[in-house]
Amino acid sequence: MMLNVDNVSVRYGAVMALSGVSIEVSGGGCLHSIIGPNGAGKSTLMDAIVGKRKPTSGRILYRGEDITRKSEIWRRHNGMSRSFQRTSIFPGLTVREQLELVAHKLGDKRVDDVVEVMDLGDVLDVPAGQTAYGVQRRVDVALGLIGNPTLLLLDEPGAGLSAEETAGLFDHLRMLVRERRMQAVVVEHDVDAVFRLSDVISVLDLGKHVATGTPKEIRANPAVIAAYLGSEQ
């Protein structure tokens, strides 16, 4: 098992953002999406997985190892990578400078591949902050792809993008996951894209795990319909 979220709870003061969530993510060439209404705890779960937020209780196992207390730096050097809900890049550095910097740190000599896959060739020498928002999203994902991670966590990669751009980005991701045999875990609001492209979907609601299954299973799950999808689905 690539990732095992084992009975994880996260509390913010009096608010229980995650309550005993357990999700298993199998490894290799699979796109696992996490969906749920606003306030379901999706981003908190992502933060707990990548080490930004320490769980109040429970464990995060990565390739069988308990990494609950490991730093985000350790996680990145061991194949776990993430992108952010709000674009998180280095606006004053050119696209080339930031990709090279991270590649240099992670010993990745295949930056050209990432540039090609994320279609950044035309903006390499432009300060990232001066590029269009859609490009910045791609830079964000590209930073996560450097170092050939085995587990890529993407927090709403389509946020702020048009439906067309989101579909394009998901197509890219789908291709990457297949070609590089990496595991992607995606939190996304665009339900159509999620159901079209995901291999596995987990649903959260009010900080609790509702269901995990294939898109077909999730569509038919009464608890999911009641909590999230609604009767028209």
């Binding site: 930004k52 985000e72 990578s81 890049i89 606006p91 004053g92 910097l101 450097i146």
Partner: peptide, 18 residues
């Protein structure tokens, strides 16, 4: 370059392994 990147976005730098 590392220093300027840290100045711009320290959190992202940590998540990039720095």
């Amino acid at each position: 370059r590392t220093l300027r990147a840290i100045k711009e976005n320290e959190e992202r730098m940590r998540f990039c392994g720095f």
